[in-house]
């Protein structure tokens, strides 16, 4: 486990296998009795040129920045070379202790695609819909969730819209020269 402080916020990076243990400890011993939010973040293409997840598919073009993309071509001289991330997906659990001062902590786990994550629904029942939402929009599987089904998109929807390789709009176009 690793502890980071940034922007006055505490982040605890936890091994996914010990997530439940860490969460139980934080709730029972440290008093973080309210789970405020669960957010998964897709870091596919983080810090690379021609980042997928802008307009079009990964191989397609970015209509907001035609031509070459990435930091080096921008003229203000702010090179963009963010810290590399340990895995594709980060899942953040924002915890709150309902006591004056409102102490908060962010529990963060890192997983690769298709690796299931233990469900915290036993610890905080409110995780039910949060986990279903992240399953639906990000494609994170939560092991031990009793009703892991799509919640926002239709049941037969294909793909997970908030992933960076999911196109924002339009259909892929095949030109006559392409094979």
């Amino acid at each position: 486990m690793e502890r980071r402080e940034a922007y006055d916020e505490t982040t605890l990076v936890v091994d996914p296998a010990r997530l439940l243990e860490a969460c139980r400890f934080l709730r029972d011993e440290e008093g973080f009795d309210l789970l405020s939010d669960i957010t998964a973040v897709d870091y596919l293409g983080w810090g690379e040129k021609g980042v997928a997840g802008y307009f079009g598919t990964a191989a397609g073009r970015d209509l907001n920045a035609p031509g070459e993309q990435g930091a080096s071509v921008h003229s203000q001289g702010f090179g963009r070379s963010p810290e590399p991330k340990p895995a594709r997906f980060a899942i953040n659990y924002h915890l709150l202790a309902v006591v004056p001062g409102a102490p908060r902590v962010r529990v963060q786990i890192w997983v690769e695609e298709s690796r299931p994550v233990p469900s915290v629904i036993e610890i905080w029942p409110t995780a039910d819909w949060h986990e279903r939402e992240q399953f639906d929009l990000m494609g994170i599987t939560f092991e031990g969730h009793p009703h892991l089904r799509r919640i926002i998109m239709e049941d037969d929807w294909e793909g997970h819209p908030l992933r960076k390789d999911y196109p924002l709009g339009g259909e892929p176009v095949r030109f006559s020269g392409d094979e």
């Binding site: 940034a6 405020s36 939010d37 897709d42 983080w46 963009r80 963010p82």
Partner: peptide, 28 residues
């Protein structure tokens, strides 16, 4: 960086989690 900011909206705790990669657009 990443931040999580909350306010008391009329309906309760309204939070906003942002991730920036240092560019002109939010990452998440």
């Amino acid at each position: 960086g990443e931040v999580y900011v909350t306010v008391e909206s009329p309906r309760g705790e309204l939070g906003c989690y942002l991730v920036s990669d240092g560019g002109p657009r939010p990452w998440r």
